[in-house]
Design a protein around this nucleic acid. Sequence first.
DNA 1: AAATCGGGGAT
DNA 2: ATCCCAGATTT
Length: 350
Amino acid sequence: MIFSKILINWYSINKRDMPWRLTKDPYCIWLSEIILQQTQIKQGLPYYNAFLNAFPSVFKLAEAEESEVLKLWQGLGYYSRARNLHTTAKYIANDLKGAFPNTYKDLLKLKGVGDYTASAIASICFNETTAVVDGNVYRVLSRYFGITTPINTSNGNKEFKALAQELIDVNRPDEFNQAIMEFGAIQCKPQNPNCNICPLQNGCIAFNRSVINELPVKNKTLKIKKRYFNFLVIISNEKKTIIEKREHKGIWQNLYQFPLIETKKNTSIKAFEALLREHNLLKDRSFEFVLYNDEPIVHKLSHQHLYTNFWVVTIEELPVEGIPVEQVHDYAVPILIGKFIERFNFNRML
DNA sequence: AAATCGGGGAT
DNA sequence: ATCCCAGATTT
């Protein structure tokens, strides 16, 4: 039996129930694919339901404020996905009058839609024969065909895309694409794949050579930077506090945070007091402060480790406008801040 | 080509 | 700790 046929047969028996498998509506498929980029289904699923509930159509999404979209995206990470999602929704609703692009070529032009997502939408919604290549596909193909080209190189990307495009079932591109991804997710897993019950075992080069655990090959480049964040949780007698928007490029763009002092290394309380006293918001003012956490809170991102302190500063009157403390819940914040807000429990002060 | 962009889950 | 996750974009 041929490769695609085996996969599709396996898929028909083993596929999991997913809400986005109940529809071919490009809006729903697009939304699910953006949410699931670099995101496990278990983590993305509640966000998919929340978004469809809040924004049942591309027009509703287009009408929303970006702040609202980011708030709903809070905790999912890679926030450029949410910003691009909103930009693209406005483009489709306003410029295209809601007519979703229906070819791989046109889908690729959308912000936040790359080769994988364009292929997925084109095949699932419009039956176009465009093969997807995601992390699952890299793994399944590299093992079955014994390919040692590193997957995170341009050569690897080209090679696997071409191979997947050869293997795809032209009569059922949608099923083939979903089958190979599902197969990679629950059968040909990264660790301890179920080779003993695998329908592709016979022809699998990695299995026959006992090199399953060596594939796929990936170049590692990761350099992790350490950063030292000090957030100022400034609270006035009126129970107001200050938050600010992260406007600049970099992590958490357009999300909110407490005023931040970043230092080159972790500072002692004594040394930090000096920084506090010369800070714009506190200069020449009378205040008290306490370090909320005993040890720096370590927040790990893929390229940075953030060593974080929350300094609770009490002051008679805010130097700028500020917001009532209970309103901190209304803003999209990084999960690092969100967890602090939850633990600190501003509402107890009311 | 390499760096950047999150947060959680599995081992 | 380390790797991975239904990748895309910027540098």
